[in-house]
Design a protein around this nucleic acid. Structure first.
Length: 322
DNA sequence: CATCAGGGCCCTG
DNA sequence: CAGGGCCCTGAT
């Protein structure tokens, strides 16, 4: 399906703003739903049931940071649809985030200071909806990266849509409810294993409107967490990712998985991965970043993955087991 | 060839 | 609250 350019919108970002560190996260696994090169991100987006193509371009001038969003579709789009879509993009990528406090407090901190100076204006965030992120989160569970990518790709090819815009062919996520008539066995045939049940349950849950992402955004983190844990297939690890990436809680840090523990141990304590610092002690260490502890670790984490793009880091390669 | 952990979670006892 | 089982892969 080839899409046409329907609308171009300028969106401002708060300053300081770093386009590439915001729109490309080297630690997120590459999937067929987006493509990045410096200054441009092509991204598919399923918004209110419509499967759109987006070309997001850096549009920053010296004193006016921002992006240009080209929206591609096969029909004209209503004004309020476009506005809501752009608001959602602003939200998901945190274009209106005020980082001044964070920058001021930590710009001279030993580890974080230099990283903040290098990546000043980087935002956390995730391009997907809550539904989409949960699906991906489930695919990440108890699997190697390669396997997660394979499972995601199979799902996209079965239930997503391949769209072409601006000379890019990218897969777009399906809307919630798409799996209504799909059986667990169908999903298992895609080699999802026991995750088939979780994904089926999640799709039903969203299709039946038992959860509202936008209402949940307004709730306290305690409510958000308990609502997420009610979902079949979502446990503490997946909830932790969601609370940061989807619900934008910068202070929440309650979970460290074994592979992350090893990387943190090396980064913060230069400890051999075979002998990592206990997770409890790491969490205690992150307390120094107070209200911004997860944002702080995100900066340090992303910095590491950007380094990996440019230099070989043997100890890291051994830990991530792609 | 077998065995086993892996970007967890659910269920059982 | 600890521990077994789960799908499938690739490493050993």
């Amino acid at each position: 399906m080839k899409l046409q350019l329907i609308k171009t919108i300028e969106v401002e970002a708060t300053r300081p703003f770093n386009f590439d560190a915001t729109f490309h996260k080297p630690d997120h696994f590459t999937s067929g739903d987006n493509y990045w090169e410096p200054g441009i991100r092509w991204q598919t987006m399923c918004w209110r049931g419509k499967q759109l193509g987006l070309k997001i371009t850096n549009n920053s001038t010296a004193n006016r940071p921002g992006i240009l969003v080209n929206i591609y579709y096969n029909k004209p789009l209503a004004e309020d649809f476009i506005n809501s879509c752009v608001n959602e993009i602003t939200h998901r990528f945190n274009l209106d985030l005020d980082l001044s406090d964070f920058n001021r407090i930590f710009c001279n901190e030993k580890i974080l200071g230099p990283i903040i100076r290098q990546w000043k204006g980087m935002r956390p965030g995730h391009p997907g909806s809550l539904y989409e992120y949960i699906i991906i989160g489930i695919l990440l569970q108890n699997a190697t990266i390669r396997r997660s990518i394979n499972m995601f790709q199979s799902l996209l090819e079965q239930y997503g849509k391949l769209i072409e815009f601006d000379n890019k062919k990218l897969w777009c996520f399906w809307p919630p409810g798409k799996l209504k008539k799909v059986s667990q066995e169908n999903l298992r045939a895609l080699k999802l294993g026991y995750r088939a049940k979780s994904i089926k349950c999640i799709d039903d849950y969203f299709a039946d409107n038992k959860i509202d992402e936008f209402e949940l955004r307004q709730k306290t983190i305690a409510v958000q967490r308990s609502e997420l844990l009610k979902l079949y297939g979502v446990g503490p690890a997946t909830a932790w990712y969601l609370l940061f990436d989807v619900f934008h809680n910068w202070a929440f840090f309650d979970h460290i998985s074994p592979w992350e523990q090893k990387i943190y141990s090396k980064l913060f304590f230069n400890r051999n991965p075979a002998n990592p610092v206990p997770a409890e002690k790491l969490l205690q260490y992150f307390e120094r970043y107070g209200e911004y502890k997860q944002l702080a670790v995100h900066y340090i984490w992303e910095d590491l993955w950007w380094k990996r793009k440019n230099e070989h880091i043997p100890w890291l390669e051994e830990l991530i087991r792609i």
